[in-house]
Design a protein around this nucleic acid. Structure first.
Length: 879
DNA sequence: CTAGGGTTAG
């Protein structure tokens, strides 16, 4: 079924205005034949496509050469010259002639020729001649002028004359409408259409085709449907071109079903009908249907043309059907389509999207003309494969080759920089944008902000954001999401506040802002956003619902999280994973396991992240056997290869359970190189189980892998301190000092009346500092009375016990808890968050408070949640 | 008489 490229001939049976002429633009041939019949044999051998040279023609046709007739017929001469297509001579004669002798129809001839040659310059010369000679611009001449101007692309001038002559000929109206449509000014075209109807100008098939195109482009579904009814009344409903426009219109407004019905009922389908339907399927996301229809098209004997191939290649790209793509490639080459840039560009893109990068490169290499689209497609191809450096290199090469990037190129290359996290390359592109004055384009700005956010520079992103003349919802979401992901939750929340004053957030905004509430553990702000979600019906957005569950988990309310979780009708992998991880964080290991099993029963396949969550849940609840079981299920049943995170969970599980030697052996047997977290998990196990010797051995690995991380030094120091090895503690402190490292200062915060209060360790500058101190002292002595002893070893200072106690009293989580007791209404749960792990002494005190004061305390540390109630913590010592 | 309907990249 090999197919030749069909040239699109003007068609068809149903057309009233059959295009019988050989076509205006190509009419030289016929005119030449006519001319060669005249007695000038020496011109006969001239190729019909050759332009007549000025000199040659002037020899024969100059009126000055005429011998007897002094009153030369200038009009005839000019018409003759026009017949031959010699515009230069025609103009010259026009200006040589006595103005009064030139007839209107002569001007029409020259204008017609100017239009055919698309020579605005010559057309204007005729126009100014008309003006200076006083020829009245009647309806016929006016029409010709309009035709010339519109055809030559000067819509403004054409419109001026059009308005003056108030012609009621439908042709001229169609001409104007088409002119506006071509430049994308659909609104003006529609306005003309309305005027036409008001004036009672009788519309024809061309009019409705054009107006349907406009309404399709404007997305005016209602108006388009009205035209549909209107054209049926006019009896235009059986015209092939009209139905084709209707099909295209319905496909643009995404009414594929209506389009298909029209297509099926169309008796004389031509290649355009097929192409419209196929490309419409592809554009509406039904690529398979497009391919199916394509096969039907070939069966019914209609040859594909360039447009068909382009659509089908797109479909192949969408479906990843590279074999059909290759077949179309072959047909295209046979039909010589590979000389067409559009074909090659789509072909290149098809190979790239199907993951056949070398195929894309081969197409690129073989192309003789590479446009900006070609380069952009190849850059996108590299970026898609994660080869960002190569993508950026191509961008510079393209520039050197003299092909100017457009906004698509810029956004694509920015995306490559973003994926690469290469701020330097991104800044280079930013400079290029400034140099080429593209920084006011909204797409470019959004891509720039995204790049900066992904490269971690929110400062630069903000600078772009502030300078944007117009911001859309994507601009806001990019910034808010950027702040959220770069651990700047306060900035995210503050910008969200600015945003709601200017525009309505969408699902993406909400899904971006919830993690910020979560990271601050700001339940009040989270609830505000929840209210917003309910009021605006965003709970049905899967991403939003998932983020909401996650927020409640991280704000310390797993019960509410579960309630919402149960309300999500279709739970995806993320929904399940968030809940499982949530249970893990709160130490509800068994709930996590139940939920994990429910997920598998629901037919949702766990991925590596859900396995991290379940293993983590097991380790935080000390469920050793279950943890092992899941580690095996993961590999045996689910084909998930364990990564560092999974190994870390297992090490953590073994180490916490006191199986330190086994954990050490396990690390040594790992098929991948262990990192600091793996060794760190074992180190923390050593501290819990007081194995100083192993701790020292393990610490060596850790310090080598992450010498800057002070947390590990503190961990070892704590191990020494618990063993009362103060000399070693001192040495370690000196080591930290020598390396210029500082212990990360402890910081806790608590939300009271929607305001977040932050406490730093040892800081007494809070307005209520005195009251807090008094309360803590009172609690401390009460604790002693009831037999609690302060865990002074955590003070890490080798001093007398009173000093240590004082130091411990300054711990930020105690300050925050005390502030909560003093300022929250009685009975309200006290929710405190801390940036580091909770200290042992604070943990003891929280237990005590929960018992004596009967207050529930939820403490979130860097690792997990602690729920204190009636003197017990849910962690049962696993932290 | 002259014109119209389907075609590539983020």
């Amino acid at each position: 079924m090999m197919i030749l490229m069909a040239t699109i001939l003007p068609s068809k049976l149903s057309l009233p205005l059959n295009n019988k002429k050989s076509g205006g633009k190509h009419s030289f041939q016929s005119k030449y034949v006519f001319f060669s019949n005249k007695p000038y044999p020496k011109f006969a051998p001239l190729s019909p496509n050759l332009h007549f040279s000025y000199d040659t023609v002037s020899v024969i046709t100059s009126p000055a050469q005429s011998k007897d007739n002094k009153i030369t017929d200038w009009n005839t001469k000019i018409n003759e010259v026009c017949e031959m297509g010699n515009i230069d001579k025609a103009i010259e004669l026009l200006y040589m002639s006595p103005k009064t002798e030139i007839e209107s129809r002569t001007c029409c001839s020259i204008l017609q020729l100017s239009a055919e040659l698309k020579s605005l310059q010559d057309g204007k010369k005729v126009h100014s001649f008309i003006c200076s000679s006083g020829i009245s611009i009647d309806s016929v001449l006016g029409s010709k002028l309009v035709f010339m101007y519109v055809t030559c692309g000067d819509l403004r001038e054409g419109r001026l004359i059009f308005d003056k002559i108030r012609n009621e000929k439908v042709f001229l109206w169609n001409l104007m409408m088409n002119g506006y449509t071509k430049i994308g000014d659909f609104k003006e075209s529609v306005s003309l259409f309305r005027q036409m109807l008001d004036l009672g100008v009788e519309v024809n098939s061309h009019t409705v085709s054009c107006i349907l195109k406009c309404f399709a482009a404007l997305g005016s579904a209602k108006e388009g449907k009205w035209v549909h009814g209107f054209l049926l009344k006019l009896g235009l409903g059986s015209y092939n071109a009209v139905v084709n426009s209707l099909i295209a219109f319905y496909l643009k407004i995404r009414r594929v079903d209506v389009a298909r019905k029209l297509f099926d009922e169309l008796s004389d389908r031509d290649v355009i009908s097929w192409n419209s339907m196929i490309s419409g399927y592809v554009a509406n996301g039904f690529s398979e249907k497009g391919v199916e229809l394509f096969k039907k098209m070939l069966y019914s004997g209609v040859d594909m043309d360039l447009a068909t191939m382009v659509s089908i290649l797109q479909a192949c790209a969408n479906c990843g059907d590279v074999s059909l793509g290759r077949a179309v490639h072959g047909s295209g080459v046979k039909a010589c389509a590979h000389w067409k840039t559009t074909f090659c560009n789509t072909l290149l893109d098809m190979y790239a999207k199907c993951g056949v990068l070398d195929g894309a490169i081969r197409v690129f290499d073989l192309m003789s003309v590479r446009t900006v689209v070609t380069w952009t497609s190849l850059i996108a191809a590299y970026a898609r494969e994660g080869l960002s450096d190569e993508a950026i290199r191509l961008f510079h090469e393209m520039d050197r080759e003299g092909v100017s990037p457009d906004i698509f190129t810029i956004t694509t290359v920015l995306h490559a920089c973003a994926c690469n996290g290469s701020l330097e390359n991104g800044k280079d592109v930013h400079n290029y944008i400034r140099e080429n004055d593209m920084q006011s384009n909204i797409f470019v700005c959004n891509a720039l902000m995204d790049m900066y956010a992904k490269c971690g520079s929110m400062e630069d992103a903000k600078a772009v954001f502030l300078e944007m003349p117009v911001k859309d919802i994507i601009s806001w979401n990019t910034m808010i999401g950027g702040y959220s992901k770069n651990s700047l939750p306060n900035e995210a929340l503050s910008l969200f506040g600015d945003m709601v004053l200017e525009m309505k957030p969408d699902g993406t905004t909400l899904a971006c802002i919830l993690p910020a509430c979560a990271s601050l553990a700001s339940l009040d702000r989270g609830k505000e956003v929840h209210g917003h979600i309910l009021r605006n019906g965003f709970f049905s957005d899967q991403q939003v619902a998932n983020a909401l569950v996650d927020m409640y988990v991280k704000c310390g309310v797993p019960v509410l999280a579960r309630l919402l979780f149960d309300m999500i009708p279709t739970k995806d992998l993320i929904t399940w994973t968030v809940m499982i991880a949530g249970y893990g964080m709160h130490g509800f290991g068994n709930n996590a396991i139940t939920t994990f099993n429910e997920m598998r029963q629901a037919g949702v396949e766990p991925d590596e992240v859900s396995f991290i969550s379940i293993l983590y849940a097991c380790s935080h609840s000390g469920l050793l056997d279950e943890g092992w079981r899941f580690f095996n299920i993961m590999q045996d049943e689910c084909n998930v290869k364990p990564k560092l995170e999974h190994y870390a969970c297992i090490v953590d599980l073994l180490a916490r359970s006191g199986k330190l030697a086994m954990a050490y052996k396990f690390i040594k047997s790992m098929p991948i190189e262990p990192d600091a977290t793996i060794w760190g998990a074992l180190l923390s196990g050593c501290r819990i189980h007081h194995d100083v010797k192993l701790a020292e051995k393990v610490a060596e690995h850790v310090f080598e892998l992450e010498p800057e991380n002070t947390g590990y030094y503190v961990l070892l120091a704590n191990t020494y301190a618990e063993a009362e090895k103060w000399e070693e503690v001192k040495k370690l402190r000196q080591k930290i000092g020598r390396r210029g490292l500082k212990k990360n200062p402890g910081c806790s915060w608590i939300e009271v009346k929607s305001k977040v209060h932050i406490f730093l360790a040892g800081n007494s500058s809070h307005p209520q500092a005195k009251k807090i101190e008094v309360l803590l002292k009172r609690l401390r002595s009460k604790m002693k009375e009831e037999g609690y002893f302060p865990k002074t070893r955590y003070a890490l200072i080798n001093a007398d016990s009173l000093q240590k106690e004082t130091a411990l009293c300054g711990h930020s989580e105690k300050l925050a808890m005390a502030f909560g007791i003093l300022n929250l209404p009685p009975g309200r749960t006290i929710r405190v968050s801390k940036n580091l792990r909770v200290c042992g002494d604070c943990h003891e005190m929280a237990k005590f408070i929960s018992k004596t004061l009967g207050r529930e305390i939820v403490l979130r540390d860097s690792n997990r949640f602690h729920h204190f109630k009636d003197g017990v913590c849910c962690c049962r010592g696993f932290w």
